[in-house]
Amino acid sequence: MEDREFSVAARSQRRTIARRFLRHRPAIVSLVVLTAITLFVFIFPIFWEWPFTKRDKTALSQPPSWDHPFGTDELGKDVLGRVMRGTQRSLEIALIAAFLVTIIGVTLGAIAGYFRGWIDAVIMRFTDLILTLPLLIVVAVVSVGYPGSPWYTIPVILGLFAWTTLARIVRAEFMSLREKEFVEAARAVGARDRRIIFKHILPNLAGPIIVAATLSIAGTIITETALSFLGLGVRAPDVSLGLLIQESLTAFKTRPWLFWFPAVAIVTVCLSVNFIGDGLRDAFDPKQNRIKA
């Protein structure tokens, strides 16, 4: 009986969140845009005659044209093909890094906040330690140690150092939630720690975790750009959006299309992700509920 009531309440709450999210217009537009871009960059390359490495020797450094809608670079590579591939890579990097950040951040934050005591002290001092070094600097120094390694080392390194914020959020929430009556009740009926953590506390944190994970996708893309700019991101012949920006910055004046298309792609993707994150935050946290004027 109690179980059924709970599930009814949960379902209606989920519906409220979905409704609030749907009402956030920028987030919905962003979701559509991001989905369209993702589908496009993953599916269209299959049909596109100019993959990112193929050179069109008859068209070097050409501005956008019918054959090459985004133009070509000085080697005759099709910019559209490269931007699609770069967006693919950047999205993959961002997703892997966000996944790692979420897993590590939630696990460490949950352990620290739930068990407290010396475990908490150790984890939090470790977090403080990582926070003494700016993310870009750590990641850059670590990346130097792995020259020529495949692209997926970048999101792994990013993920290994970027989880601190999420861990702190999760820990704080755990600290307050573990004192709540429903946790006490679960403990009173003999639920094990693992069950309390996963069944009773974590579901309540879905909101902040999803929001943080979303925002870390945008953050990763930005950091990857910075890394590529320092020559430590994805390496040629592979491309990412950051690498395309780095390659084209010097050609800004003479061949602006090399810069503009990847730049617009980065900004569009990040902007969409950030707006979706904002919409999710509004949906999960009705505290700052908007009252229509």
Partner: peptide, 18 residues
């Protein structure tokens, strides 16, 4: 604010330069 959040420093600086 969201726009500036979403522009990498390299892009922003290149942009300003131009």
């Amino acid at each position: 604010a969201f726009l500036f959040f979403s522009i990498p420093a390299a892009v922003l600086a290149g942009f300003l330069k131009e």
